[in-house]
Design a protein around this nucleic acid. Structure first.
Lengths: 136, 136
DNA sequence: TCTTGACTTGGAGTGAACTCCAGGGGGTAT
DNA sequence: ATACCCCCTGGAGTTCACTCCAAGTCAAGA
């Protein structure tokens, strides 16, 4: 697979793919006789994994550490597992952050809805004032 | 409330608080006779809201737009509501991204667990090879 | 043969979001 | 009066994660 094919398949620019390889975020990709990258299925699986983890917000530094441990072999299994467990924890925390934010947005949005019923305005004016002008 | 009190209460550095005000991410804070910031309760509510939204990943640009619309008054209510609805959508999408990533991490982690039972190693060697060396 | 187009490398540039710093002021403690 | 601390402003510096670019190689098509 050429770099442009991989680029299309995974929606990552060739520049980003080269960058990821350069910094060790994915293992080194083999070159053909001309010196062009020839991505294997294993390379693609790495790309998919890394893309997914990046979109969830895992830092590049953590992922490069994981990749280099992987390349050091079985002796690093425990360390690698610990990294994954820690990041899993972080994602769970981030899920809660998102849930909180969504709840707050819902509360604010429903306030904006209330103004669609002008006859109710008087009733809610006080709470609106609080909600709105205090930026709550 | 002084800037150092607010800084402690909301775990944002004074530099960050000044920066947020400078770029309009929070409305301008009043100064006392000496020229020092004196945060009102309304200011604190804005800070709390902005901090929450930033931690969920809303871009600063979007939030400054929201804040300036707010300062323009009631005529911008619809626009503001649309911004919040759009961001709510984005957060729901991000929740799904996180869920997917967590599922993938769980799968990988359970593979690392299997190696804790050496007598099972032979049985799972082939699938481990797949899971592991292909970076899946 | 000449051009075209996809690829290579190493390095510089960009945008977002802080973070730090120099230079200065004002109020309190010794 | 001097030292200390917290605050101010404007502007420069940093980090992260790309993104772009110059200069060059190589193979296929007109």
């Amino acid at each position: 697979m050429t770099i442009s094919e991989v680029s299309k398949n995974y929606d990552l620019s060739p520049d980003t793919l080269r960058y990821y390889e350069r910094i060790g975020l994915i293992p080194r990709v083999e070159r053909d006789r001309r010196g062009n990258r020839d991505y294997s299925e294993a390379d693609c699986n790495w790309i998919q994994f890394i893309k997914c983890m990046r979109s969830a917000g895992l830092p590049i530094e953590t992922l490069t550490e994981y990749v280099s441990l992987f390349q050091l072999g079985d002796g690093t299994r425990l360390k690698r597992k610990e990294i994954l467990l820690k990041q899993r924890e972080r994602l769970l925390e981030q899920m809660e952050v998102l849930q909180t934010s969504i709840r707050i947005l819902d509360r604010k949005i429903s306030h904006y809805d209330e103004v669609l019923f002008p006859h109710e305005k008087e009733l809610t004016a006080a709470s609106l004032k609080n909600e709105d002008e205090l930026g709550a």
